[in-house]
Structures are given as structure tokens and as C-alpha cells.
Amino acid sequence: MLDFNALISTTMTDTLTLNEQVLKQINSQIANQLNTGVLVLDADFNIVIWNRFLQVHTDKIAKNTLGQSIFSAFPELPERWLSRKFSSVFQLNTPSFCSWEQRHHLFELPHTRPITTDSEFMAQNCTFLPIETDCKSKYICILIEDVTDVCHYQTKLQKTLAELAQISRIDGLTQIYNRRHWQESLEQEYAKARRHDKKLSLIMLDLDYFKLLNDNYGHQCGDMVLIEVSALISSLLRVEDIFGRYGGEEFAIILPETALSGAIELAQRICNKIATKVLIYKDQAIKVTVSLGVAQLSVEESNYEELITLSDNALYQAKALGRNQVCSADCSKSLLID
């Protein structure tokens, strides 16, 4: 190639043996057939050599580019930052790197997969190597590797992992948190409440006569009710509340920094809202109700499971008192004593 031969002719002396010439030719041909961009700069950042990879990936003409400053040949480069990076290579005589993971690309070059990937420019790993020659002049060799494929698949992998993590937390039918994630959250909220001495309340709720509904209208109707009720409850919650499907037709809501009175108020609102909502299944109007048990964390409980037991007991109390109502741990305790 033109540029490499030009360099050879300027440095070549008549005393070169044939062997050395052959070696130079081999070296220059390898440089030109590499699938890596090679660019050499002098101490003033002017382009001294560039290989075929760069010539075919840019629309620049070799003879116009050689001798030009890299920053005028490639105006897209961040000049201030890159000059400082170059100076570390010259001054410390150490290599420097620039990875696609921190900076997608330095040079705006097209790549070979413009259709099948969504990145406009070639993702690059760049290496800046110090080159010292016999005549004491210093150069920098810039290697530009095309890592568009790596970048593309890595991005896809990250996206898939994030989706998987999300799916593993979500109940497939109702799209609210599943039991496992809900319970992990409760464990964390319990620890937080204990450490910072904050309030924490819990609502457990259960659809009334759900088995009967399934028997009369079929399981598809039951599923529709679960979906609708979940959505209805979600619309009544604050962002920090953690709502999950505890089991079949049982749901649970963690209420951080909430006292019992606030939790009862919310439970009552949920109870009323569901009781007055008319659901439609195959042109039939369906009315459902829920029973709710509410508890607040006190000094007595030594783990989060005990808080679940408290609200569960209150829930059974609400069922026992005739369903479609809210019962708190306090009232279930007093009733048990009576």
C-alpha cells in the first residue's frame, strides 16, 4: 500500500540487505491486511502512517490525510481529553487504553453490520502504544479494533438478564410481585424498620367465596377477577408500598413507615372499592368482596414471620365476623380474650 511503501522508501538506505527488504514488505502487507485499524502519530499528533483498514473505513484519501493533524482529519475526536491521554503515552512511555464499555467509539467509522445491529458507528477498543525509534523521535501507534459484535451481544445479554430478573419477581397472572419476591421485600423492610426504629404495617387480604365463584363461572372468570382486583388495589397504593400475591386468592401489602391507623384506613378503602366495583364476565355482572387483616410491627415480634402471623390472625377474624370487612390485630387480640 501507498503509505507504508512511502515510509519504507524514506527510511530505507542502500545498505539494506534483500532480507531486510523482504521483511519490511511482509510487515507492511500484514499491517495492511489486519482487520484492525493502525494509525501512527508523531509528537505533534500528525498522522504518519495509517493502514488499509482505516483507508477503506473512512472516505478520506490517503495523500490528503498523511501529515495532517489527527484532530483535523477526524474532527469528531474529543481533542482536549485525547491530547492529555496522548501526552501520558509520550511522557510515561506506557500504553493507554479506551474501551467500548466506557466510550462506545472514538472514531466515527461505519461497520459491517449496519442492518443487523442498531449502532450507527463501529464500537471500538482502542490502544495507544508508545513507539521509540533509533533517532530518538517518539511516536504513538493507535490500534482500533472493531468490537461491534461484542458490544451488540453484550448489550442484548444485559437486557435479557434485566428482563429475567424482572420476570423472576413477577406473578405471571396478575403482574404484581410473586410470593418469593414479596417475602424477600418484607424481610428487608423488617430489618430497615428495626434498624431505624421506623413504623411498619402489613395488610393480608383474601377474596371471599372465591371457590364458589370458580365453581359457578369457571376458572377463567376466577382468573379475570384476580387480575381486575390486583389492578384495582394497585391503583390505591403509594409507590413505596409493596403489593404481592401471597397464594391462590390471597394477597399481601407491605406498608413501610405506616402506623396501624393509616393501614386500617387504606384497608377500609380497598374493602369499599372492591365491594362497590361491578366486574363484567361474558356479559354477566359479578360482584366480589374481600376480607382484610391489618397489623403493625410492635416491640414484641422478633422476626418478620410473626408480623405475617398477626395479620393472618386478623384476616381470619374478619372472615369469622362475616367477611367483606377489615379487622386489625388489636381487635382480633381483644376478641380472643373475650
Binding site: 474529543p78 482536549r80 492529555r84 501520558s88 510515561l92 506506557t94 500504553p95 487504553f97 466506557q102 466510550r103
Partner: peptide, 23 residues
């Protein structure tokens, strides 16, 4: 000797690391 908005925190860590290690 960079301007903070020229590069991310990650890239700063990588740059200084590389300089210390290779030197």
C-alpha cells in the same frame, strides 16, 4: 488534568489505574 465532564467516573478510575500500574 481532565475536565470532569469529559469522561465518566468509571473511565477516570480505569485511566488512573492504567497509569499507575503500567508506570
Amino acid at each position: 488534568g481532565y475536565e470532569p465532564d469529559e469522561l465518566s467516573q468509571d473511565e477516570q478510575l480505569i485511566d488512573i489505574s492504567s497509569i499507575l500500574t503500567t508506570t
